[in-house]
Design a protein around this nucleic acid. Structure first.
Lengths: 341, 341
DNA sequence: GTGAAAGCGCTAACAG
DNA sequence: CTGTTAGCGCTTTCAC
């Protein structure tokens, strides 16, 4: 591979001139610039990013740290983030934390050791020690989807509390009074918010909040399946279920089908998040949709703006919370008179 | 961040000794080693990978180049690859090629410029110029899922021709005679193989191959939907459909439902690939399952073995083709007498 | 065993 | 405008 030295040699100039030509063409004579460019593409020269990064103390790569690469949500997010990063001249390095804060911190260390320019992170920790580590990080950080409360960092997501509230309102308006939520692990920001939105809606309607109807599905379809089984075999079973994630909705639906409950005739089901293949699922699920591409683009831009700012830490944290959209499918209906209020 | 110099200073040794201690502890006295280690973790020293890579001419990162990060197949693949790479001490940098060979080649250049240790690639090109570029690449390369015929490179995938054949056999055994395939773009290796497997099965059964029944769904659900619409509104419509990918099966299913065809009563539907959430889809699809985690692990190991080998180019190309597993769901049944043979 | 020194490829003063 | 020079942090001969 040709180095800057080779280019200098064949162009008959000093290496610093070659460097300058690429960094700031206006500061060399047009003639020199032409000779350098010619030599460069004659040799197929590409600057060695490793050397550049070592010198600058920072690489042109951004890191992305998510809980589950293989989930449909993060799959779409990664795709859009990578695209935007590439447009702005950055490569993307990604790792899967399995939702484990320890792992996350270790990976954060590895990434910063690589001198990445910035990091997009979906933080899963909640301890104050964890928060300190995040805040202490010198590398620009942007939180996406999840958030650590109190960390003064950029944050981009859709309004997940509102999402839960919209769905709960919808179910209440249909006449439901016993509405269960299959939640995520409540130490997680999004899971807690979804519970809050649900409670807000109930309280606004003057309905009691019954903790029995909040069961933890851990954001996993299998857990959700099991919890739905338990929920629906109780005497005081709910007439409607709100699943806090798409995968959990699928688990719940499977359980309902196996128990012989018709949806929405016997039980209504609503969910948060977009399932791309939702069209073929019967019944079509009522859900709130997030604009993932928008989240990706905004968060990538926040990050790179900060990276390219002259004083990244002086920038006050920005925050974008997108309004989700309610899609009413055929999985929700008024409660049947037998179970109804 | 502490550098090797700081460690040397506080340990009271030369920097070369520090370097040696980490690279080859046996070659320094036990006492020195201890002092170095103590100094190192007192300062929280981590070697700068950029400097190491610059010096060695190679980084401890592997690249992954796939056609669509957000697809369920690659999502699961990436997750498992990243895990395996991390276990072996490598970070993963990924990019989405959108299935465009040009883009792929450009990204390949960018990645090799980064001095990545190796590259996992799902090659989408077919021109000989493209093949030359792949073969000329100095960086260890492993092809996964897709393959470029004739390139002497490692290759890992499941036997996709056999997969198509198994499904076609199954449909034939049920009594179907008019079996359509919704194919991928046939210039792609996997798509072509799936057509081959289908033809082999028909020929082995002494059935004619009818090109009318091969329609291109471009590996996209929307195209598949449209093609199914076209297919099923023809006079000589098929009694069974084989969708060459999971997303295409969903598109086909949606079309069938909208046209009012019952599956499997009116039309049988079978597909290749595993859909994690397939359990909630009615009917349960008959399909062949690939062991994605296995593909990921083997390909990562092939790549890293080659990376760590002393003479990577001397290693003869290895190849693993995994046997897929047939799962018989409820989407396939004998043809009804009205449409049947 | 340990240290001095060269150099990986590049950038950024600083001279001229 | 262009060249010289001093590193960025590390590895790796080669002496001692």
């Amino acid at each position: 591979m040709a180095t800057i030295k080779d280019v200098a040699q064949t162009a008959g100039v000093a290496i610093s001139t070659v460097s300058l030509t690429f960094a700031n063409p206006d500061r060399v004579s047009p003639d020199t610039a032409r000779r350098v460019w010619k030599a460069a593409d004659l040799l197929g020269y590409r600057p060695n990013p490793l050397a550049q990064s070592l010198k600058r103390g920072r690489s042109r790569m951004i890191g992305v740290l998510v809980g589950d690469i293989s989930s449909p949500f993060f799959g779409r997010l990664l795709k859009a983030v990578e695209r935007r990063a590439l447009e702005r001249g950055y490569l993307m390095i990604v790792a899967d934390t399995d939702g484990d804060p320890e792992r996350e911190l270790e990976l954060l260390d590895q990434f910063t050791a690589q001198r990445i320019a910035g990091l997009l992170i979906s933080p899963h920790g909640s301890s104050t020690a964890y928060g300190r580590r995040l805040s202490a990080c010198k590398t620009p950080l942007v939180m996406v989807d999840h958030r650590f409360r109190g960390a003064p960092l950029d944050y981009v997501a859709s309004d997940t509390r509102m999402a839960a509230r919209m769905l709960t309102d919808h179910l209440i308006n249909l006449g439901h009074r016993r509405i269960a939520q299959i939640t995520g692990p409540v130490q997680l920001y999004t899971a807690a918010e979804r519970v809050e939105g649900y409670k807000e809606a109930l309280q606004a309607a003057g309905l009691p909040v019954n903790d029995d109807l909040l069961v933890d599905g851990r954001y996993r379809d299998a857990e959700s399946y099991a919890q739905t089984m338990r929920l629906m075999t109780r005497a005081d079973r709910p007439t409607a279920i709100l699943a806090a994630s798409n995968m959990m909705a699928l688990g719940a639906l499977q359980a309902l089908q196996e128990l012989g409950y018709a949806c929405p005739e016997d039980v209504s089901l609503a969910t948060i998040d977009d399932i791309p293949w939702s069209a073929v699922i019967k019944p079509k699920l009522t859900m709130v949709l997030q604009d993932i591409e928008q989240i990706a683009q905004v968060s990538a831009d926040y990050l790179l703006d900060r990276v390219e700012s002259t004083s990244p830490d002086k920038l006050t944290p920005r925050e974008t919370v997108l309004i989700p959209r309610l899609f009413i499918g055929s999985s929700t209906a008024p409660p049947s008179s037998i179970n109804g209020a």
